[in-house]
Simulated scan of single mutants.
Amino acid sequence: MPHLEDIKNRIANIDQIEGVIVAMRAMAAAHAQEARKHLQAIREHEETVARSMAEAMSLVPSSVLVPESGTASVTHLRIVVGAAQGFSGLHNERIVTGALALEGEAETRQYLLIGQRCISEFAARGQDSVWSANMAAHAADVPGLASRIVDALFDSLESGAVQHVSIVYADPATPENDLTVRQLMPFDFSRIARSRSPVAPLIMIPAVELIAQLVEEYVFTEICEALMLGFAAENDARMNAMTRARANVKEIAQELQRKFHQARQESTTTEIIELSAESYAAGDFWL
């Protein structure tokens, strides 16, 4: 049976670990809530850009908005929004496994990775990336990261290095943070209905150039949304992992308390036996 002091020390250590777990869960909850507050603003901006694009599209024939037919073989750039940190269960592994399982006909795949854990997991599986960055530390930092990603992917598109771009992320609105894949480029103009307003919008630059700029801004908002959802999903996963960890720690603490009481009872019994034996040896007893 372990010594009483050893058990007391282990109980104290478990209490400290539980305190850390509670703090990590609270921090994850705050980050997830922060992300959800920013999502509304991102989606409102996306709707504003879509309305502007609908008006600009009314100024050009439909044939202008049809993407050029690609070659038989294309290079597909997949942006994978993974985890920045650990302590989130199998969240990151599920994202990486799902992203690598996606296949396209006659395509060469390249990866743009977000999140240090995601980058490490890809490397562990022998997969390289053409560009990578860590996830934003706070929700307010997401637009800056999205801007860097947009610059990188449009540079690749303009140079002809890639023809298709999609983004892969976990959706916290689903029970299991299901993987979502969204096509970014070539841009699907069928998602936006042309404006039927009888009054043509007043523009200062050619309509085709305006539409190109609006497409880039729309893709920027889509990436912002995907990053924010990925940020929320990671923190949701961490909250769940910390909840499970706390339950396990409580079980360990209860078992240690049981052992402590048992050890104290045995120690008390041993002391009584020793005192009785000493009294008997000294003749200090009654018949």
Results as ranks from 00 to 15, higher is better:
G86S: 11
G86R: 10
F122I: 02
V249E: 15
G144R: 10
T269F: 12
K250E: 15
V64W: 13
A99S: 01
M185N: 09
T75P: 11
A72N: 14
D171H: 03
A50L: 05
I7Y: 08
H76K: 03
S52K: 09
F231C: 02
S62I: 09
L59Q: 04
S58Y: 07
V215H: 03
R258N: 14
M53H: 09
A253F: 06
G160K: 10
Q183A: 13
A233W: 01
A237T: 07
E222A: 02
A123D: 08
A35Q: 05
M1N: 11
V66A: 08
V219Q: 01
N9Q: 13
V66T: 11
E225F: 02
T174Q: 07
A26I: 07
H38N: 10
N134C: 11
Q40G: 03
M242A: 08
Y280K: 10
I114Y: 00
L102E: 07
T108I: 11
G89Y: 01
V181C: 05
R36M: 09
A212W: 01
S58R: 10
E266C: 10
S279P: 00
V81Y: 06
A23V: 10
F220N: 06
T71N: 10
S166A: 08
L179I: 14
G283R: 04
Q254T: 14
V219G: 06
A281Q: 12
I114P: 01
M242E: 02
A106N: 15
L275D: 11
H164L: 08
F154L: 12
F260H: 12
Q262T: 15
T97W: 05
N177I: 00
R43P: 03
D151G: 13
I7D: 00
E47C: 08
E266W: 10
G89K: 03
M242Y: 02
V162N: 05
A72K: 13
Q257F: 10
P67F: 07
I7H: 04
D6A: 10
E234M: 00
F87P: 04
